[in-house]
Amino acid sequence: MITLKNVTKKYQGRLVVNNFSLTLESGRIIGLLGSNGSGKSTTLKMIAGLVQPTSGSILINNEKLSRRSCRDIAYLSEHDTLYPFFTVIQIVQFYASQFKDFSIDKAIEILQFLNVNPSDKVKHLSKGSKGRVKIALTLARKAPFLLMDEPLSGLDPMVRESILKGLISFLDIENQTLIISTHEVNEVEFILDSVILIKNGNLIDFIDVDTLREREGKSVLEWMKQNFTNC
């Protein structure tokens, strides 16, 4: 379980995340939605322990977030974080040396599913292939919390659905929680259990997708557009 208590983040006096209070239960796939600059990436970085809140606190399984929390969190950045001079398999081996919960066998299985050649050099990969490698590296960990910041960025729209279905199949949903930030709302909706909507650093709503459909009879995208128009 991840708990945010009155979490606020400012950069040089500019408010980026404004007084977030949330409890994210285990065994869920949670969409973190909002426009560019809304605070999605900053929120994920704070949960991952990469950025410190200006005020408030973050708890992982009722323990205050600390350096030790990295053992429970796998984080996929929206930025290119792969060493270009490595081959893909060398990147896999490097991750295995850094994280005790990393499975080389699972990483290779996922790479095969995603049609990535482990012997290819990272510097020769397309943006989409690099994105697939990052997905494989994240899913190959047994960490209870997986954070993915725009994992579909750069991927061919024709293959996104199959990649998302693969993501579900490789996720241990009974023991892992996935929080995914994305602009591709229509494409990810079918895998989401609940959604968090933020705008200009403010929490607009946090709701189960099934409850949303039953209460308002809307898709997540329709609900999101309505809230952005009204707030």
Rank of each mutant, 00 (worst) to 15 (best):
K106F: 08
F99Y: 15
T87A: 01
N115R: 15
C70I: 10
I73F: 00
Y83R: 05
D72C: 04
I108E: 15
T87S: 15
F85H: 13
E78A: 11
I108L: 15
I104L: 04
N115Q: 15
F85W: 12
V92L: 10
I110A: 00
L114D: 02
S69H: 05
I104P: 12
A107M: 09
Q93I: 00
T81Y: 11
D105S: 15
T87H: 11
Y83W: 08
F94S: 07
C70R: 14
D105L: 06
I91C: 14
A107I: 02
K100Q: 13
T81C: 10
S77W: 11
Y75F: 09
I73H: 08
A96N: 12
E109M: 08
H79M: 06
E109T: 08
T81M: 12
I91G: 04
I110C: 00
D101F: 02
S69Y: 00
Y95C: 05
H79F: 13
V88C: 09
I73L: 00
I108D: 10
I104A: 01
E109V: 00
L76R: 07
V92C: 13
K106V: 03
I73G: 06
S103P: 01
E78K: 05
S77M: 05
Y83P: 03
T87V: 03
T87M: 11
Q112S: 14
K106T: 09
L114T: 00
F113D: 07
P84A: 08
Y75V: 04
F86A: 05
S103C: 05
F85I: 02
Y75L: 06
H79A: 07
F86E: 06
T81P: 02
F86S: 06
F94K: 09
F99G: 04
F113K: 03
S69A: 06
S69E: 07
F85R: 04
E78S: 10
E78W: 04
F86V: 02
I89H: 10
S103G: 04
F86K: 10
I89M: 12
A74D: 04
L111K: 08
Q98H: 09
T87G: 02
L82F: 08
L82T: 03
I104H: 11
F102L: 07
F94E: 04
N115V: 03
D101K: 05
E109K: 15
H79C: 00
L82Y: 11
F99W: 15
A107Q: 12
D101H: 10
D105A: 14
F85A: 04
I108M: 15
K100S: 14
T87E: 13
I91S: 15
I110N: 11
P84Q: 10
K100F: 08
A74Y: 07
I89K: 14
Y95P: 01
L76F: 01
A107E: 13
T81K: 12
F102W: 10
R71C: 05
C70M: 09
H79Y: 13
S77K: 09
Y95F: 15
I89Q: 13
E78H: 11
I110V: 02
F113I: 03
